[in-house]
Amino acid sequence: MATYEEIEQTREDTAVSPTPRRRNGRELIIEGLILASGVSVIIIITLIFLFLLKEGLPAFTSQPISTFWGRRWYPIEETYGLLPLLAGSLLVTVGAVVIAVPLGLTTAVYLGEFAPDWLREILKPLIEVLAGIPSIVLGFLGWVALAPLIQNMGAPTGLTAFTGSLILAYMALPTIISITEDALYAVPKEYRDGSLAIGATHWQTVWRVVLPAARSGIVIAIMLGVGRAIGETMAVMLVTGNAANIPELGLGMMFQPIRTMTATIAAEMGEVAQGSTHYSVLFAIGIVLFIITFLVNSLATRLIGGRPKQRGAQL
């Protein structure tokens, strides 16, 4: 991952190339195309954001901001409390992270460091196939298979935050495993040799040298995996019960139906009158999601820390 400074640097380097006269028309066209594609991405993202603001901002002006802090989401009564939706999204996502991260990391460590070759050659492609399963299929699976199972275990209903977390964790796993394994693989052999030559065991080497050296790659793996989970809508909508209530705090919290922000937008957008308050509130939820994603990304960048050059291992 190049930073902007590095990209600038590269541009300057090409600009002062020793044989400027060689830069013929073809070169210019190629550079132009690359520039155009880079700029167009930025333009599109900006336009999306502007559109989101244009449609969503009226929600904040048409009624006091405090209404959004309400504990009730009843659009029919013009009550737009976002807390239940925030709580729902938070529960499902945190649940998914708690399940997927330890499972994903240990699987990647096993695959990358301990599994015999023949097993790795079977498991790796299988895990990559997992990543390709459409989310709705996973949602369906959760609905017909997982939900009854959870209900049998004693939950009031099978469609709960926990069901959603399991499905999301399953979706995030392939990404986390695959990218973490790449990051482990990228750790120079010299570090392992150095550790082994001191008399450290294989596990000590992995735990104290390889994993810390691959830290930045692992953080990226988790962010990408979790990123997929946060944005997921349909599968979650199927299995979480879609009840916009704030779960009671406690151990049973995970076993109550909830509703996420994304599911709310997807479920209600088709029914609202365009330009109505409800309509702009749904876009406002989109803005909130956008801000959350932005915060999570910035946090990840800070966790990785420093410029890529100073890091140990990179992807």
Binding site: E190, Y191, D193, G194, S195, I198, G199, A200, Q204, A213
Partner: peptide, 29 residues
């Protein structure tokens, strides 16, 4: 390997602090 240590061709300190590099062996052992 604890009894027969090795120094490699390319310096390969771990991407950690100076202290932790030296303390690594005594810690794991």
């Amino acid at each position: 390997r604890q009894r027969v240590g090795m120094v490699f061709q390319r310096p390969n300190p771990f991407p950690q602090s100076i202290y932790n590099n030296v303390a690594y062996g005594p810690r794991v052992l």
